[in-house]
Design a protein around this nucleic acid. Structure first.
Lengths: 113, 113
DNA sequence: CTCTTGCATATCGAATTTGATATAATCGCT
DNA sequence: AGCGATTATATCAAATTCGATATGCAAGAG
């Protein structure tokens, strides 16, 4: 039953890009990645409702390509940037906390905001 | 009524270290700092219950001085490291989400874990 | 008082993350 | 099909963050 989770991780640059086998990741490393992916998903959904990647990039004083990578959960994007991006969409600490709390649960992706 | 909040921020390296006046920070920048401070507080409380800074540093594959800075909410510590440190104390995404969700509320510091 | 233990501060080269830029792919529309 | 707008991918130098090391400071034990 790890296959779904594993598939989600491998699709981004996480496995090949890091040259580490999924099964060799410690539980903490897996959780960290899942937190990033949860933030990335939430970010994309929030952003799509309000603006374009380029517009968010401007608010963030970053660039559109970096926003794209953030939303993809790319391995080169830090939690720091993900959180700043969330804030730039108007998210509150509560919103961000909720997004993180749910990380690692493969749950239904629909009821997300 | 900003004085309490402001005092909390100024005490760390946030104002002088960054050479930016507190009042010139955007709301998003303030929230980001408050999230870091909330994580830092939570980290210290969790860590103190379980181990020494040096022990946590080893689990983290980091160093005791960096853990100290993390717990102080030092400006040179990223959210990334704070989250990794939380995970290393055994925190779940839920725990981390809760810690972040209360950021910015000057609330009673006692009922924290 | 002296030792030890735990935490804080300073510095520094190495590694990671960043924004910028160029460019390609994709979608919606006519 | 052709076009404009949006998003994805690649590269790279600059900035930030990192771990390591050295050292200072405080509190408790003996």
């Amino acid at each position: 039953m790890d296959s779904a989770k594993r598939e989600r991780l491998e699709s981004k640059g996480w496995k090949v890009g890091n040259a580490v086998d999924f099964l060799n990741l410690s539980p903490e490393e897996v959780l960290l990645i899942e937190i990033k992916l949860a933030l990335a998903d939430s970010l994309r959904k929030r952003r799509q409702k309000r603006m374009t990647q380029a517009q968010l990039a401007e608010k963030l004083k970053s660039s559109q390509p970096r926003v794209a990578r953030a939303e993809c959960g790319d391995a080169s994007v830090s939690i720091e940037l993900l959180v700043r991006a969330m804030l730039a969409t108007g998210a509150t600490p509560k919103d961000i906390g909720k997004a993180i709390a749910v990380a690692g649960k493969g749950g239904n992706p629909l009821p997300e905001a």
